[in-house]
Write a protein that binds this DNA or RNA. Structure first.
Ligand code: FES
Ligand code: FES
Lengths: 170, 170
DNA sequence: TTTAATGCGGACCAACTTAGTCCTGTTTAA
DNA sequence: TTAAACAGGACTAAGTTGGTCCGCATTAAA
């Protein structure tokens, strides 16, 4: 599935909510109420985001969180890597800090490793081109994502496999 | 981290090994020996790949596995989705079959959902452009990945965050 | 016909990760 | 002084993942 953790998803939702507030600060409670994310999780995610330098926090009464810079300058990659480590499909090479022990025993033999670097870069690039401001735009029609109209989708899972999965990306 | 499961990684390694054998078939044991992947896991992965239609199997003595079509016609997306479900960053929309219950409670409120579709598509496209044959090529210098030489990396994690992570993708 | 190699289909378990909760500080405006 | 808010943990429960194992069906070859 290549999925992000749900916390990261939450983080993005919260950030967009926060971005909508402009330069105002919002309390964790307000954000929880505004998004539907359970408060304790909001708190946890926000803490992480603050630690990563994406948010500034004000403590004490009438405190809250605010973006540390304008949404246009917060790339999606930074959000994701703040919440779940560096963007990298493989755990093998390029493990930023999650797998400090023996990376992968196959590394010496593995002949695929080199390719992953390129693939990872591609994805990072695609994700880095988007900023928080883009995510806030109401219409899902984005531009400049590197893959404009390209009619020939190479091959998207024609053979559904028995995992009960289907290509139901509609 | 956005990481693929290790099984998927194994699968790719095994497939490349198999592709190197041309149209010959290989037994699970041979592949295990050739790649260093533990045999039981090889077996499991291979079974999955067979079920997905990427491999053909011959049972009985002197049986084995072979590619169901030339490596040039096996896109990377198909391999990945065969082993871990559809390629989709978010569990929210577009869950192919892994989260059959209540997808995401926020769906009604969430204003980011629409964007993920575009992002997912982008990644699928980048991955689908690569075939198994490409992965077998010895040199990691790939072409036609949509992001050729692009000198200006938009913004790659300038603010490393305390997860002990760094941009250490070298 | 017998034998042995091989894939098939599961069940199964231990270890790890994740989502979520809770509690005790510390800071700060009112 | 008070109460609202963040900081920083520890903690738990649930789920996922990687990995192992076994009995069965199939098939080529002896
Ligand atoms: S380096 Fe781990 S499988 Fe290639
Ligand atoms: S739909 Fe689940 S968080 Fe957006």
């Amino acid at each position: 599935m290549l999925r992000m953790s749900k916390m990261t998803d939450y983080g993005i939702v919260l950030l967009t909510e926060l971005a909508r507030a402009g330069s105002e600060t919002r309390t964790a409670r307000e954000l929880a109420a505004g998004t539907g994310v359970p408060l304790p999780s909001v708190s946890k995610v926000l803490k992480g985001l603050q630690g990563a330098g994406l948010l500034v926090s004000h403590r004490g009464a009438s405190g809250g969180y605010g973006l540390s810079r304008p949404a246009e300058h917060i790339p999606l990659t930074e959000i994701i890597s703040a919440l779940e480590g560096p963007v990298s499909l493989t755990e093998c090479g390029a493990q930023g800090g999650h797998a400090p022990t023996g990376t992968c025993e196959l590394e010496t033999v593995c002949r695929v490793r080199g390719h992953w670097r390129v693939i990872n870069r591609t994805i990072q690039d695609a994700l880095g081109r988007l900023t928080l401001a883009d995510l806030c735009a109401p219409v899902p029609r984005l531009v400049g994502l590197g893959v404009p109209a390209r009619p020939a989708a190479p091959a998207q899972n024609p053979n559904p496999i028995p995992t009960t999965a289907g290509g139901a990306h509609s």
